[in-house]
């Protein structure tokens, strides 16, 4: 059983794949599925750039084997919204200066989606706590916090 056959759903599409057991979920997503929006920033579970939603919950795909995700539904940044139908978070990240170099952005959007699913109207403090697993070196986080607050207001019909 050096290999594992996966039946998963990725961004709504069913995927069958045969992977080595030691394949990380992050490698599987980036290399095998060529979904390169999921980034590699530290490979030690700190920076959050590799965050994806697994059954709706954000986790760090560099800390997880592809084999562990068997049977799960995975949403990567590519599945969060599309060019013509952006997720409110994507819109507000653009409008509020929630990104600069963009390298951390997919991970923050995933973490933010997870946060708003758990807590639709977070306070600024709760937003900051919700981002404690993600690093950004460009924005100073202010634009990101502002963006999440704005998206939460939009999503709650303000």
């Amino acid at each position: 059983m050096r290999r594992k056959t996966l039946s998963i759903t990725v961004n709504g599409e069913p995927v069958e794949a045969d992977v080595p057991a030691n394949r990380l979920l992050s490698e599987f997503i980036r290399e095998d599925l060529a979904l390169t929006g999921t980034k590699r920033g530290c490979e030690t579970g700190v920076c959050g750039a590799c965050s994806v939603l697994v059954d709706g919950k954000a986790l760090k795909s560099c800390l997880c084997l592809a084999a562990q995700a068997d049977g799960a539904s995975i949403t990567t940044i590519e599945g969060l919204g599309s060019r013509d139908d952006l997720h409110p978070l994507q819109e507000s990240f653009m409008a509020c200066g929630g990104l600069q170099c963009g390298y951390c952005t997919p991970g923050f959007l995933i973490a933010a989606a997870d946060l708003l699913a758990r807590n639709p109207r977070p306070s600024d403090d709760e937003i900051r706590q919700g981002l404690s697993g993600n690093l950004c070196r460009c924005t100073g986080y202010q634009g990101i916090v502002d963006a999440i607050r704005e998206a939460s207001e939009k999503m709650n019909g303000h």
Binding site: L35, G37, G81, M94, G97, Q100, T105
Partner: peptide, 13 residues
């Protein structure tokens, strides 16, 4: 917004 923002929020940069 940055001209590259649309690509970046989609993870497509």
């Amino acid at each position: 917004p940055q001209v590259s923002a649309l690509e970046k929020v989609q993870g497509r940069a």
